[in-house]
């Protein structure tokens, strides 16, 4: 039995009468790429916030990286990385300055930061632009840099909230190669996306509809279960049942 890094048990979040997340139960194993899918307003963001320790659940239990999401949010934050499409990097700092800053935030020593900075810049092929402001980088590079920084402290889990919006198909795949590499190195990846082909890249995925998890399996099994050719159609079949509009 592999190590479980996220364990959610009937996790629920209510805003007044509205149940944003309705008793979701699932497990994510170490080193897994776990896709977290759902239509706009299905409750993905709310669920993710609870797991990151940013939002207190109404009821239910969950452990992230072995820590309780009610009581040990500080420990959780130390053991996870987070990247979203909206917030990534400081645009008015250079590449190197961003890496140093976040390295410092995550509590790396000066020595570690120095090594990491060098490694990262070489790995991403950013040597020629390392002194440039991030604002001048192409979006694809920013995303890769942002992801690398999110895992600079070797977290147990990295949460990616729609990480690859707005880039060309080639850049998107280069980004996914980074994800594979991280997973290969034992970092668990928890990712939301609107690209259904990306859903296929996940080891397992869950699909949320109206706050509940309606399906949870490997892409292959899901396609077999719904008797369709692509994840797109699995998603379409499920999400069409949705009754609420955010």
């Amino acid at each position: 039995m592999e190590e479980v890094v996220i364990q959610a048990d009937k996790l629920t979040k209510k805003f007044g009468d509205f149940t944003a997340v309705d008793a979701i139960t699932f497990q994510v194993r170490k080193g897994e790429i776990f896709g977290f899918l759902g239509a706009n307003g299905a409750g993905k963001t709310t669920a993710m916030r609870m797991l990151c320790g940013l939002s207190v659940p109404t009821s239910g239990e969950a452990k992230v990286a072995g820590f309780d999401i009610y009581k040990e949010t500080e420990s959780i934050k130390k053991n996870i990385g987070y990247m979203s499409q909206k917030f990534s990097l400081y645009e008015d700092l250079t590449v190197v300055e961003n890496i140093r800053f976040f390295g410092g935030i995550y509590g790396l020593t000066n020595e570690q930061i120095k090594n990491k900075t060098q490694q990262l810049i070489e790995r991403l092929g950013l040597t020629s632009v390392q002194k440039q402001l991030v604002v001048d980088l192409p979006l694809g590079w920013k995303q890769k840099l942002s992801f690398s920084i999110a895992i600079i402290h070797q977290p147990k889990i990295v949460f990616l909230d729609e990480p690859t919006g707005g880039v060309d198909p080639l850049t998107r795949r280069q980004f996914w190669e980074l994800i594979y590499e991280a997973a290969h190195n034992g970092i668990t990846v928890f990712v939301t996306t609107h690209y259904m082909d990306e859903a296929e890249y996940c080891d397992r995925l869950s699909i949320m509809v109206d706050g509940r998890i309606k399906a949870l399996d490997t892409p292959k099994n899901l396609k077999a279960e719904f008797e369709v050719e692509s994840m797109d159609e699995v998603f379409y079949k499920l999400a069409r049942q949705a009754t609420r509009a955010e």
Binding site: G38, A39, N40, A42, E162, G165, G166, H194, M196, D232, F235, Y236, A239, R240, A242
Partner: peptide, 10 residues
């Protein structure tokens, strides 16, 4: 359709 889920996009 940017940022819109696949069902709505379709």
């Amino acid at each position: 359709t940017t940022g819109v889920d696949p069902v709505s996009r379709r």
